[in-house]
C-alpha cells in the first residue's frame, strides 16, 4: 500500500467521499428490495433511536426486565408473592404453560425462575425424584393463574394429569 499521504481536500477526495456516502445510503436505504442491511438497521438501530427519549425515562430495572420478559416476569412475581414458607412448588411442564401464554415460556425452567426472583423452594417438572415432595401447584386458565394446594378447590390429580397430557 502506498504510504504517501494525499491532501485532505482534493477533487479525488470529494469523489471518493461521494462514493462512500452513496454506498452507505445504498446499504441503509430502501432502494434494494429485501435489503437485509436496511431491515437490520431499521429494527436494531432506528427503532431504538426513535424511542430513545421514552425508553430513557424508564429508570426501573424491573420495568426494563419486564419489557424483555413480559408475562414470564409477571408469573414469576406472582409465584414469589403467593408462595408460603412451607410450600414446595411444582413447576409445570413448559408445554402446559404454552397453552395459556402467547409469549415464549421460560419461567417453567427453575434456572430462569431463579434469575427472575431468586432461589425459592421449587421443583422442576423433570425432577422426577423430588416431584413427589411438592405440595403446591400452579394452575393456569386463560387470563388467570393461581397456586393450588392439596385440600383446595382444584383437584391435584386432575391437574397433574393435565400436566402430563400437555407433554
Amino acid at each position: 500500500m502506498n504510504t504517501e499521504r494525499p491532501a485532505f481536500f482534493s477533487v479525488p477526495a470529494v469523489y471518493l467521499t461521494a462514493a462512500v456516502v452513496f454506498i452507505l445510503l445504498l446499504l441503509l436505504g430502501p432502494a434494494i428490495n429485501d435489503n437485509p442491511y436496511a431491515q437490520s438497521y431499521e429494527s436494531r438501530v432506528e427503532l431504538y433511536r426513535s424511542k430513545l427519549d421514552s425508553l430513557n425515562k424508564i429508570r426501573s430495572i424491573r420495568e426494563r426486565i419486564f419489557m424483555r420478559q413480559m408475562a414470564n416476569l409477571s408469573v414469576a412475581e406472582y409465584i414469589d408473592s403467593k408462595l408460603r414458607p412451607t410450600d414446595t412448588l411444582l413447576l409445570p411442564p413448559q408445554a402446559y404453560a404454552k397453552r395459556y401464554m402467547e409469549t415464549a415460556v421460560t419461567w417453567t425452567d427453575p434456572r430462569i425462575l431463579t434469575w427472575l426472583i431468586g432461589f425459592r423452594n421449587v421443583v422442576a417438572w423433570t425432577d422426577t425424584a423430588r416431584r413427589k415432595h411438592a405440595n403446591a401447584f400452579i394452575a393456569l386458565e386463560p387470563s388467570s393463574i393461581w397456586i393450588t394446594r392439596p385440600g383446595g378447590q382444584t383437584n391435584i390429580d386432575s391437574l397433574i394429569h393435565e400436566y402430563e397430557w400437555s407433554r
Binding site: D109, P110, R111, T114, F119, R120, N121, V122, V123, A124, T126, D127, A129, R130
Partner: peptide, 16 residues
C-alpha cells in the same frame, strides 16, 4: 448456590 441449591439439582444442563 447455583451448583448446590436443591431447586436446581439435576436441572443445570450445560449453560452454567
Amino acid at each position: 448456590q447455583v451448583f448446590t441449591h436443591p431447586s436446581l439439582q439435576g436441572q443445570l444442563s450445560n449453560q452454567p
